[in-house]
Design a protein around this nucleic acid. Structure first.
Lengths: 153, 153
DNA sequence: ACCAATTCTGGACTTAGTCAAGTATTTGCC
DNA sequence: GGCAAATACTTGACTAAGTCCAGAATTGGT
């Protein structure tokens, strides 16, 4: 299994180092982890790693499309290794839990924006906000001034 | 015109203060501004304002649905006063320009997620990533290791 | 095994944002 | 219009996330 990770690294043009292997493995066991959480996980397996190495590696991997970085409003950056598989994220406003969600609409649904302003669009990132089963009852904090925010789409 | 802003504040249950009026007006002339940019703008019109007042006010206004906060990956939080009008955002990966974009798909399109995991979804936030007309030619930084990232949807 | 290129470390630094205590302003009421 | 209670604002210290830099260590091709 360590070989798989090594393979992946080489295929994407990375030098193979203990740190990178550890980061990648940490990521696959902790999807949606923050840089610090990954660092902690890596330290548990490797002994130690510098913060800089973590940020450098994650940054490079994101650039090469090996992993994905997400950063919803109010959260610090999170990373995941599910990539190129057409999924989105669903976040509970109350307890901050974050789950993956597959897009119902086929292959490139949301890519059809109205007027694209001349941009070449290569990705549509969707974040669904709401309340998870556990918080659904207890929370529902009836936003006072505003209408129930029906179709922010 | 100052009266409009006052009205809006009262309607949403706010006390009316010079700072709040100034923030709201700054926001309508600078859509997608950061907290610091707004503070600077307010200082230009009012003389001075504390950072805390800016954050407090923006936070309250977001809570009451008067304004919206967006924070794309790699950006600091931005605020806008277009609210409840079903629009999304389009960002250039190269020059970071950010434009509004209306959703083509009608009223509550992207709200139809596949399996909602039992969540009650009240908002679907969409961010389109790509290259603006100006950067389209010059940038296109041919992501090496990864396939052209066709349908991240 | 050696050398150049790449990567990692450690520490200082920056930026965005929060906390808490005290002061000022607003607003409802007389 | 004046007063008190509630609300808002200011100041300054603090935290967390992330960046910068220079030097040491590792990797991988020969």
């Amino acid at each position: 299994m360590s070989e798989d990770v090594e393979q992946t690294l080489r295929q994407h043009g990375f030098q193979v180092t203990a740190q990178r292997i550890a980061i990648l493995r940490a990521l696959s066991s902790h999807p949606h982890a923050t840089a610090d959480e990954l660092a902690a996980d890596v330290r548990a397996s490797i002994g130690s790693i510098s913060r800089q190495a973590v940020y450098d590696t994650l940054g490079l991997m994101v650039d090469k499309g090996l992993i994905r970085r997400i950063q919803p409003s109010g959260f610090t950056a999170r990373y995941e290794d599910r990539v190129n598989d057409n999924h989105h994220h669903l976040i509970c406003r109350s307890c901050d839990s974050l789950v993956d969600i597959d897009c119902a609409t086929g292959d490139t649904p949301c890519l059809s924006a109205g007027d694209d302003h001349g941009f070449v669009i290569d990705e549509a990132e969707v974040i669904y906000w709401g309340y998870c089963p556990a918080c659904r009852g207890k929370a529902a904090p009836a936003k006072p001034g505003s209408s129930p925010k029906s179709s922010t789409t």
